[in-house]
Simulated scan of single mutants.
Amino acid sequence: MLHPVRVLWLSAFVWVVTLLPIVPAQAQTEVDLALVLAVDISYSMDMDEQELQREGFAEAFRSPLVHDAIRNGMLGRIGVTYMEWAGLEDQKVIIPWTVLDNSESLMAFADRITSTPLRRAQRTSVSGAIDAAAKLFENSGLEANRKVIDVSGDGANNQGRPVTHARDEAVARGITINGLPIMLKKPGSLDDPDLDIYFRDCVIGGQGAFMVPAREKEQFQQAIKTKIILEVSGLLSPPAPLVTRAQSRDARADCMAGETRWRDRTGN
């Protein structure tokens, strides 16, 4: 049997504890935008093109226009991660989720992009890139008003599940997929001469989805900068000639074209 004094002490303790405020779990960082940069490093991208691509993204985050677009957001900060991809099992986060809210953080992010050694890998799995990018939002530590995957690539999906399946699942989760089709070379055996149409009909999707084709090396960095500014600012109606719809009524792309070309070339 408890001593009466101990009973009184326990009662008082319980009473005090019930009056203590409930401390919620630590809130996630709120941002205007959570952005996954999903960057193609397949062998169809030569080293010069990869260097252009890296420098293009770095210069975009050094741009005062991008800094201003972030500052003008409701919260004035975004979260970004940089992921490189190639085949189905080859996706690598180069820069983990980073909150960008001032010029210093943006410049540091740009420096990290250019400081990582370049690499190349086999095959092109756009669907694998979208699936891997979508998973990154789950443990981002961010509470985002918008979630966007920015897919850059110079070829159609030729490994993994159909790209439209990956796109549709990501869109169903409230994620927007934008595209940067890279069309710097003359079409070859595995290249798609209408890659911009393929991206329009098969890759991009979600609210306000758009793409910015890069057709000339001289325009490559400007295309990347334009795309980042539009994504950060959240514009839903980019000016011509940007494509704003994931699918259109006059869709012409074969969304299995990459798989077909690979099978015809290799017999697998």
Rank of each mutant, 00 (worst) to 15 (best):
A257Q: 13
R112N: 08
G155F: 03
T176Q: 05
A60Q: 02
S189M: 15
H3A: 01
E216T: 05
R252K: 12
P238W: 09
Q53Y: 05
A240H: 07
L10V: 09
R252G: 07
I177S: 05
E30H: 12
L52A: 05
D154G: 01
I228H: 04
F13T: 14
I204E: 03
G188W: 12
S125E: 01
I175G: 03
F199N: 02
G188H: 11
A129E: 09
A108R: 10
E231K: 05
D168E: 14
P4Q: 03
G234I: 04
R167Q: 08
G206Y: 03
P238G: 08
W15Q: 15
R167P: 00
F57A: 02
D150V: 01
Q219H: 11
V93Y: 10
R62Q: 08
R120D: 10
R167L: 08
E30Y: 10
N268Y: 13
K135P: 00
I78Y: 02
K147C: 07
V99C: 11
R263D: 15
S125Q: 03
L52D: 05
A38G: 02
E216C: 02
T18H: 14
A223E: 01
S248G: 11
G205M: 04
Q207P: 07
R261K: 15
A58K: 02
T81R: 08
V14C: 14
E259Q: 15
A27R: 08
A253T: 01
Q159V: 06
